[in-house]
Nucleic acid binder design. Structure first.
Lengths: 146, 146
DNA sequence: GATTAATTGACTAATAAAGTCATGTATTAT
DNA sequence: ATAATACATGACTTTATTAGTCAATTAATC
């Protein structure tokens, strides 16, 4: 039950943008390099975010992309929702009608509880929280090197 | 991020066996029919459980399979572990060394928290809990039909 | 108008999951 | 014994999804 690379790469890309929040446009190429994601793939991941308006973009020289909302207002549940859709571990959780056993199947309840648990974690965390964690980690790295 | 059918079918099959706990061998064919799983597929799902010893089996006429441990002693985390392995949403959670960014990546923490949340749900529930839920549901169904 | 950089669409490759089929082995009943 | 039954195992096929690439387009700046 793995998260898709869309969700993982996309989240990393947004974190990268959050770390450069309010520093003007950032080249997608640079995000790709820093996050070790191929540029062509990243372009496809970022598109829905631009469409959604949480990422701003401008083309051409001195163009680039940037986070269009404050990182503390973007929670991870929303991001993952955009990138991957629902994290229900079984189809029947979101669409009970797709399974004839629905309503008479105890396992469905469990899958529902799992979804809830995942969503709780993701909704309780914002990009800003990630930024702070990330800064702590980078700092530790530097400290340890000395 | 869907659970595999292995995990879902396997859990349903074990719940079926739990509902017939201490009633002697049950035909795999009957489990397959009740749970709407193809017999040949179910045979492959049940094999690791037999190997693990939580399902007993005997071949031949009057043979069958049965739950070899009390349902209240089997928690779902263990079952899913057998059927599908770890529910870590990213490889780096279980094997940090597979990602060069490990230790310097804040997203890894989030995936780790998700895994914990899932495991907490699964480990807090036993097959016996499922049996009770299932019996309530079946009862409701009958009641509503009247 | 040349250059840069995001946008979009079509396409391919890789991987894993799902499922089937055939064969083998153990057990029981007659 | 042997026929019937039912689990066990391995090889294989199919299907679906994800991941990723490539090429062409559009918009902005110098």
């Amino acid at each position: 039950m793995k998260l898709s690379t869309r969700a993982r790469y996309g989240t990393r890309a947004l974190l990268d943008l959050a770390l450069h929040y309010k520093s003007g446009p950032v080249l997608l190429k640079d995000v790709a390099r820093r996050q070790r994601i191929s540029l062509s793939y990243l372009q496809h991941l970022i598109a829905p975010m631009v469409a959604e308006g949480i990422v701003g973009s401008i083309r051409g020289v001195r163009g680039g992309v940037w986070l269009a909302k404050p990182p503390e207002e973007i929670n991870l549940g929303y991001i993952i929702g955009l990138l991957e859709g629902s994290l229900a571990p079984a189809e029947c959780v979101d669409n009970p009608e797709t399974c004839s056993r629905s309503g008479a199947c105890a396992t469905q309840d469990v899958w529902g509880e799992i979804k809830e648990a995942i969503d709780t974690v993701l909704e309780s965390m914002t990009l800003q929280d990630l930024v702070e964690r990330q800064k702590n980690k980078s700092h530790e790295e530097i400290t340890y090197q000395i």
